[in-house]
Amino acid sequence: MYQIDDLTKTYRQGKREVRALKNVSLTIGDGELVAVQGPTGGGKSTLLQMLGGLDRPTSGTVKLDGKDLAAMSDTQLTAARAETIGFVFQNFNLIPTLTALENVETALVPSKIARQSRTARALAALDSVGLGDRGDHLPGELSGGQQQRVAIARALVKNPKVLLADEPTGNLDEETRDEIVDLIEGLWKEQGLTIVLVTHDSVVAARTPRRLRIAKGAMKELPA
């Protein structure tokens, strides 16, 4: 699914140059569930941005299904994000003024499908995360766990090939965390999705078959 070669990303912070990723090479196969661990500021989120086409590498290539994201135009990247990549965020990032159902629908807006089938698909996605009866609730009326389920439904409604999750359980209590990890694990098993899960939580990472660790921009494989 992913073929990453010699990936380097540097940021400028004032006069200082920060190397968030240093010569990272990595292959993630189709249908893999990978956890990325590491300390805060170590480069986890930067890697996820590269994988999701949210930012461009300073050097190196990030190939998704053989196509280099770094070489794509903005329009192509936007299309890739709209069709191939699903995102789940630590803070859920739901639109506060839209209902749960409408939030899920926002992911289908770029694909320009008819409103009725859009709504039907969004409802089905909400159903699959166990929130079929909460479609008309605003995010503020839902618990943290429920909000993250809505966010997962939003990521999955477009049937992406890849699910990228940035600390999806970071803002949740233990019980809810386990529910969400159960959900993600279930999706992986049922739908054969490729999932990259960034987490600093060892408990979460321990449940995945493959674990990576990034610290100070360098990556290493952890033993299974």
Binding site: T78, R81, A82, F87, N93, I95, T106
Partner: peptide
Amino acid sequence: TLKAIGWSRNR
């Protein structure tokens, strides 16, 4: 977020 989930800049 909207950009991240695939909304174009124009949208």
